[in-house]
Simulated scan of single mutants.
Amino acid sequence: MRVVIAEDSAILREGLAQLLTIRGHEVAATVVDAPALLAAVTTERPDVAIVDIRLPPTHTDEGLRAAIRLRREAPGVGVLIFSQYVETSFAAELLAGGSDGVGYLLKERVVHLDEFVEALTRVAAGGTALDPEVVTQLFGASRRRDQLDALTPREREVLGLMAQGRTNTAIAAALSVTDRAVEKHVANIFMKFALPPSEADHRRVLAVLRYLHG
């Protein structure tokens, strides 16, 4: 394989390069930021790129954004996200065009080097390598979106006002409906969010949290 590595940690970057070289693969370039990654892929045309999510300058999501761009502009290059974090929104976008030639592994969960190289080889060949934890979190994010999609427009309005901290009476006044109507909408929200009565949890707060996360 010809490999490009985008990783801002010098120890991990050079360690990966040595690991792959020892095993007979060619490391075409090692870079520390997203612009250098895009340039290296354009110049070197590797089989696969190993990309960390959080790259300079902001160390937020530059790597994942670059990976999404690579999927669009260099579809023949496999992309393996290798990170400590699961970014569900961008990960879903990364997989939106199909799972061929895509991988997402979590650094702390790779315990055998052979498994890592095998996953990288699979991605380079057009296959898929996803950590089970990534799949679990993607499924959870998708389920939250599905729950929000299940709400009626009026229920969304009610939940939006709940997120502002308004009481049922204040919500009723804002929407020009009765308190009873608001109570019914709130009950429907709890039901669709699968939030049964509980002494330990405040359902209103939990519903608002799901609304904000969604």
Rank of each mutant, 00 (worst) to 15 (best):
P75D: 09
R109E: 13
E108K: 04
T121F: 00
G97S: 14
L105D: 02
V111G: 06
F116Q: 05
V102G: 03
G126E: 08
T128D: 08
G127M: 12
P75Y: 08
G103M: 05
R71P: 03
L70N: 04
G76K: 09
V111C: 04
G78C: 06
L80Q: 02
V111R: 15
L113Y: 08
R109Y: 12
V77Y: 01
A91V: 07
V123C: 09
L113V: 13
T128A: 11
G103R: 01
R72V: 12
L94I: 04
A119Q: 02
K107N: 10
T121Q: 14
V123T: 11
D114R: 13
V86F: 02
K107H: 09
A96I: 00
T88V: 15
L80W: 00
E118R: 14
A91W: 03
G127Q: 10
L94N: 05
Y104P: 00
S83H: 06
Q84G: 12
S83C: 06
V102N: 03
L80Y: 02
T121V: 01
Y85M: 05
A74G: 01
F116A: 05
G126Q: 11
A92N: 10
A125F: 05
G98A: 07
S83A: 13
S83R: 02
E118K: 15
R109H: 14
A96G: 05
G101A: 10
A74C: 12
G126P: 03
A92T: 09
R122K: 13
L95M: 15
L106G: 12
D100I: 01
D114G: 12
L94V: 06
Y104E: 02
L106D: 13
E87N: 13
V86I: 15
Y104T: 03
Q84T: 10
E93T: 03
S83I: 03
L106P: 13
G97H: 08
G76Y: 01
A96E: 13
L70P: 01
G97Y: 06
K107E: 11
A125P: 02
A74Q: 14
G127F: 09
L95I: 07
E73K: 06
L113K: 05
A74E: 13
G103S: 11
T128S: 14
S99L: 10
R109D: 12
G103H: 04
A119W: 00
G78A: 10
R71W: 06
L95V: 04
G78L: 01
V102W: 00
G98Q: 10
G97M: 07
E93D: 13
A74Y: 04
R122S: 13
A92G: 12
Y85I: 05
L120M: 14
G127L: 09
L106C: 14
G101M: 03
T128F: 10
D100C: 04
I81V: 15
L70T: 02
H112P: 02
E93F: 00
Y85D: 14
S83Y: 06
G98R: 10
V123W: 03
E93N: 02
I68N: 07
V79G: 08
E118V: 01
H112S: 11
L105F: 08
T121C: 10
G76M: 04
V111F: 11
R109Q: 12
V117I: 14
L95Q: 09
A96M: 03
D100S: 15
